[in-house]
Design a protein around this nucleic acid. Structure first.
Lengths: 343, 343
DNA sequence: GCCTTGAATGATTGCGCTATCATCCAGGGC
DNA sequence: GCCCTGGATGATAGCGCAATCATTCAAGGC
């Protein structure tokens, strides 16, 4: 009845219902509406119901932009991955979002590709949203990126890589160890003349380095390496393996992703090579189609869901305990060699 | 020199540099800093450089939360898809984000699954961020969702479906037409006894309905239908096809996704059935592995990149022209039957 | 000289919310 | 009666920025 106290809506207002509108309808102070919605345990049952009713009547949708500004809590988590067009990262995105959204966080997704420059650019705009937490793929960042992240003092989980010295928390695995394990596996199978097809991305190169060091430990210094651009694709795999097979006598080709390996497989088949008899092929990622190819692709399984899950959990924990000591927690989720029919 | 005019930093402040800090260092008014950063053409060259310098000195990172509140422009676009763990939607996410981020927009990703309830919940929290635009998968929404979207008056593109009556703009294709085209294709190949394995999702069901109506047009009223839960997977495909093949004499099985079709294929192979001689198999989506399977999977290609691209473009256009008449623009990107070696 | 013009810059205000502290009041101890 | 306690509610003041309008000043016309 008494709406004489309303301020006239300024020309800058958006026109939709505000907290004060709900407060007027419910006959309480704006602050009480805020509490009824965000901390209902502080408000009496009857007030809560009146507010609820008023929200429905006014069609009020809270403005979290204003809320974030006032409270310095955005309830936003930034998730930076190279791409989602790769099932491994898609899996991470899927699980991280599942965990975080169940706890009331929303996710600002950033696709940083495979270059430090893109990461820098995107990180800057991401930080301008003042996220409550960040999940960041990889742990080899430019100096500027590291500096910005430290300055932002925002809970952070690096994923999908391994280091002793994380910026904050880390959930991942060692790419070098993957490479080394693949080398040992193939050597134990008796393969000796290796081709490598690797994407031009820093983590793939780490795996290659691990693989090569594994070979060297066994006294093998010779191998053939080809790099391909991103995104990896079957045609890249075919083209580079054709090149390798034309010029070198190889008995195994190791690829930095399953999709490349599939390309190698089809090249081998088109040349009438028996797999793995005349040519062994190793992928990486254990994509859903690795098991479905014929012959079924041997590969390395990374549990993206586990990484996403643990990363999200770590982040939630840290966000809940604001200044918990920066423990430098590191979790290695490992990997698994999947020995199917191409090795 | 003169910093006597500074307000003491309130206890509620976040501690990082603000516009006023930069302004003080640069020796200009805060408003001038704002202009130098957001509308540099309004500021003299020398001022712009001084501000730039001051930004570097202070390590200032703009607070877009405050900016969004003050300007009623969030520079945020919400992108709602069922999942990213499916290459088709991942492709859409990838392209939408590519286009939008090049124009300075950030993307708030929402995974709505395949139920209207999840869509409702997520849409509510999404709207509370006051996005400048929304890309929404599907165009069959609950009444509440439709009402909220209309009330929000935010530029909207529905994707991945088709209707005459979009909420705002629409870029997609007709799932019924897909089903009908698949029916015609298989009938023309001479297949007559059909099994259908479909996910329990509304758009897959539309494709089934189209397929069935295609059969009926040809006078075929009998078919075997099995539904599977989400997410679809190879084991689901194997299990349901085993069930179908045990009980019915079929010469073709149509699946609502490639991954299901791959499961059917492996079941067929394990039974020693020749494909397509004794059993034809049809997928949907033309995932990257469809061409790689053996035999290569026949399927339906949807150009997810085109959908994402056009959707993002439409949205950008609408966001640039605030109250352009709600044209009800509809774009049908169609689909393509990919006739490989399983039909 | 005087006015106009427009580019550059500044001062003020408010976006819609929540932190914080103040107030109010019922219930209880003594 | 008085004071304490604590739950419920309210009033006030900002969060950091940009919209808006005001001011300044050099250049130019006459």
């Amino acid at each position: 009845m008494d709406d004489s106290g309303d301020k006239p809506r300024s020309s800058r207002s958006t026109g939709s219902a505000r907290l004060t509108d709900v407060a007027r309808v419910a006959g309480v102070a704006p602050m009480t509406v805020s509490r009824a919605l965000n901390r209902p345990e502080l408000v009496s049952e009857s007030t809560r119901l009146r507010v609820q009713q008023a929200v429905l009547e006014t069609g009020y949708v809270p403005n979290r932009v204003a809320g974030a500004l006032a409270s310095s809590r955005s309830r936003l988590v930034a998730l930076l991955v190279p791409t989602v067009a790769h099932s491994l990262f898609a899996e991470v995105v899927q699980t991280v979002m599942g965990v975080l959204s169940s706890q009331g966080y929303q996710v600002l997704l950033g696709l940083v590709g495979y270059t430090p420059e893109q990461e820098e650019t995107i990180l800057e705009t991401v930080l301008s949203r003042r996220p409550d937490g960040i999940v960041l793929t990889g742990c080899r960042h430019s100096a500027l990126t590291r500096q910005r992240l430290k300055a932002a003092e925002v809970p952070l989980v690096e994923i999908w890589d391994m280091t002793d010295d994380p910026l904050d928390m880390l959930v991942g695995f060692s790419h070098e160890a993957v490479g080394r394990a693949v080398a040992e596996h193939l050597l134990s199978r008796g393969y000796r003349r290796f081709g490598i097809i690797s994407a031009d991305d820093s983590r793939a190169k780490l795996r290659v380095a691990g693989f090569v060091s594994g070979l060297e430990s066994a006294g093998i210094g010779e191998y053939q390496l080809r790099e391909v651009g991103t995104p990896s694709s079957m045609p890249w795999g075919r083209e580079k393996s054709a090149e390798l097979l034309d010029r070198h006598a190889l008995d195994a080709i190791v690829c930095s992703s399953d999709i490349l390996a599939l390309g190698v497989l089809s090249e081998a088949q088109s040349r009438g090579l028996t797999v793995p008899g005349q040519l062994a092929i190793m992928g990486f990622g254990d994509s859903s189609y690795a098991a479905a190819s014929f012959p079924a692709l041997s590969t390395v399984r990374i549990d993206g869901a586990a990484i996403g899950l643990r990363a999200a959990e770590h982040l939630l924990q840290r966000m809940a305990q604001p200044t918990f000591e920066r423990a430098g927690q590191v979790l290695d989720v490992g990997f698994e060699i999947i020995d199917r029919d191409t090795t």
